[in-house]
Amino acid sequence: MRMVIVAGTPGSGKTAVLVHVLKSLMRDNFTASVVKIDCLYTDDDKKFKKIGIPTLIGLSMDMCPDHYAIYNIEDMIDWARQNNSDFLIIETAGLCHRCAPYTKNCLGVCVIDATSGPNTPLKVGPFLSTADIVVVTKGDMISQAEREIFRERIFEVNPNAKIIEANGLSGQGCLELADEIVKSPEVSLESEKLRHSAPLAVCTLCVGETRVNKKYHRGILRRIDGFQTYQGE
């Protein structure tokens, strides 16, 4: 299984870009399953189902969506395996600027909206600074100079990122992202770890656990099917 985690501020164009990417993957005979993690509401599942992609929704409610996503990675991978997919693609609402949901071997993709202003890359934290690929959207709405400054600001925060300027409407740049996805490595859950440890909250993740495997987690935990438990003494 290969896993792509796509994080980005609300409305930055994650779904729009992914729809183009998925179409291109399907043209090349790859299969993918998509999970959308959001907090309270989303209708992204409709957009993915419309192009024939198996889609699952997870709402984290009062939990940090990144914590929630990480805790459920094992179940999501199992589900994508049952679908016989080559790729598991997780779209997550990066609302928590302290967390980043990327694991070591997934392809970490941050989607960021160029109209949000050239200071935004300095503000958004680890989901930008630990990403492999940074997709910059909505460049069609600003001047070339502003786009160039935006790009420079991203490199200040994440000098090793590959930046892809994409357009969620026309699909420009999305082939480039699809190519990177095809090149991404296999993940095996047993040895998989987070890139960035999550900050304070009410589970073992909050106290620095970075192992992804479910058996290492304690505290108040919510499963993707809505079941909430307390694990521990």
Binding site: G117, Q144, A145, E148
Partner: peptide, 24 residues
């Protein structure tokens, strides 16, 4: 490229903007 956009969205002064762009 001089695009069709009529306004800047970047929240900075003229001097800061041009200095950054010259650097880019």
């Amino acid at each position: 490229q001089l695009s069709q956009n009529m306004n800047f969205l970047a929240d900075m002064t003229v001097g800061e903007f041009l200095t950054l762009h010259a650097k880019c």
